[in-house]
Structures are given as C-alpha cells and as structure tokens.
Amino acid sequence: MESVKGYFDYNVTDKCISNNFENIAKQLYDFGYHTIAINQTIDESLLEESISEGKKKKKIERQDIVPSPIDAKIIKGCDKLKILNRLTISFTTQDIINRIIKSPNYRKYHIIAAQPESQQAFQFTCTNFEADIFTFNPSTKPNYKMQRKLYYLLVERGVHFEIMYGPAIEDSTKRKNIIATAHMYHSFGKSRNIIISSGITNSFLIRNPYDVINLGLLFGLSDGQAKDAIQNNGRNVYMHGSTVLEFVCWKLY
C-alpha cells in the first residue's frame, strides 16, 4: 500500500478545477497539505433522470450513471503532492446504491463518502454501505436522527465523520448548521473519528493547518482531536478506502 504523508484535505470540490486548480493545489501544498482529494458529488435526482433517459433509449445496461474521476495533472513544484479522487453520494433511499456500486467508474475512486438525506438512508449507511466518509449538506439541517449506537457502529466499521470549514467561513447559515452538526457528533460520539476538510470552491477559503486546528476547537474538538482530524485520521481514511475498494472488487467479481 502506498504511503500518504503530511496534512490531509479530502474535500477540494470539483468547482476548483475550473477555478485555477493549479494555484489552489500549490497553495495547499505550501501550507503543508501533501494529500488532497478532488470531490465530485452525485445527487440522487440526477441519477433518476439519467435512468429515465436510459430506459427511453433502451441503453440502461450500458449507461454509466457515475461520472469518470477527474484526472488532475501533476503540479509542477509539488512533487510530493498526492491527488486522490473522491465520490460523494447524496441519497434518500438505498435502491440507487446498488446501481452505483456496479458502475465501472465507481471503482476508479479512491475515497467514497455517503451523504444520507433521510432516516432510511442514514440507517443503511450505518449498517450496510461500505463508505469511508460520512458527510452532510451544510446548507440544510440533517434529515435524520442521530443515535449513539449508530454513531459507534460507524466508528467500529472505520468510517470517519467530516466537518467542513470552507462553507462555515463562506456563509452564516452554513456556519450554524456545521457547528450544530459538529456538536451533535460530540454529544453522541465524543467526536470520535472526525476529519476536518476544506470543502473549498476557491483559494480565498483555504486556511493553513494551524488555523484549522483552532477552528476544530470551535467544532467541539479537543486540541488532540483537532490535530488528528487533519493528520492521523486522514491517513486512516486512505487505508480504509484502499481496503474497502479491494473488498468491493472481490465481491463484484
């Protein structure tokens, strides 16, 4: 297994690709982030439209509903920067997941994140979905009820809970939702298995690791937990993602 080092940022949104990604990557690298992930999000409603179109054209079997990972070029001067691909799946029911995991493109992603949008999706994520990261939409409050038992079930399965600092800086409503969710993680799981990522859309939102650690205190983390959230836990996510990918490929074939 390849080694990953430095600070981690697993949520550089795909919007950054068209917004001078090279400069963003260099800035992250200069701050000490040596492992980053380009995040692409697929929404259940878009998948349903794709399936419907596939039926009309009678090409549903050959249609890949998961987009290809973005192929980022090697950044000059950032030789030690490792760029991964992350797929975030926003869903309300588990039905669509079965189609997604059979996608050839699905197996090309290094990191998989689950973004449940209902109680049913939340339960499925906790018990059956092989994800690496548990995330949420900062624009809205969670549409599910967190339980201590389910939180620790995810911890036992090696899943990490994501908190994003970029949207918290960008918008006051998102900031309230992020802080509320972060404190919910503290109440139900004592902030176990937390990662802090940027969720940035532009370079103005990037913060250095020491500022992120300070923000972690605002999110209810201890100093040690805040450091782990951008360092040790990031390494654990990568190791978990590599193991799960091998398992999924073996299961499908």
Results as ranks from 00 to 15, higher is better:
193 N>D: 12
151 Y>V: 00
213 I>W: 05
167 P>H: 10
1 M>K: 12
27 Q>K: 15
29 Y>H: 15
250 W>T: 12
3 S>Q: 04
178 I>P: 06
163 I>E: 05
38 I>M: 03
122 F>W: 14
87 L>F: 05
20 N>W: 01
184 M>N: 13
224 G>D: 15
237 V>S: 01
29 Y>A: 02
31 F>A: 09
127 T>M: 07
82 K>E: 08
206 I>W: 10
247 F>N: 11
60 I>E: 01
32 G>Y: 09
237 V>H: 01
15 K>A: 02
220 G>H: 09
217 L>P: 08
50 S>K: 14
249 C>N: 15
240 H>S: 08
148 R>N: 09
231 Q>G: 12
59 K>T: 02
90 S>H: 11
239 M>Q: 13
37 A>S: 08
124 F>C: 01
190 K>H: 12
90 S>V: 06
183 H>Q: 06
91 F>Q: 05
109 Y>T: 01
194 I>L: 08
159 V>T: 13
199 G>W: 02
81 L>M: 14
232 N>A: 12
175 R>W: 03
102 K>R: 15
30 D>F: 07
133 I>N: 08
37 A>I: 01
11 N>G: 05
3 S>G: 02
143 N>Q: 08
122 F>H: 14
63 Q>Y: 06
144 Y>A: 04
207 R>G: 10
88 T>D: 06
98 N>C: 00
30 D>T: 14
116 P>N: 09
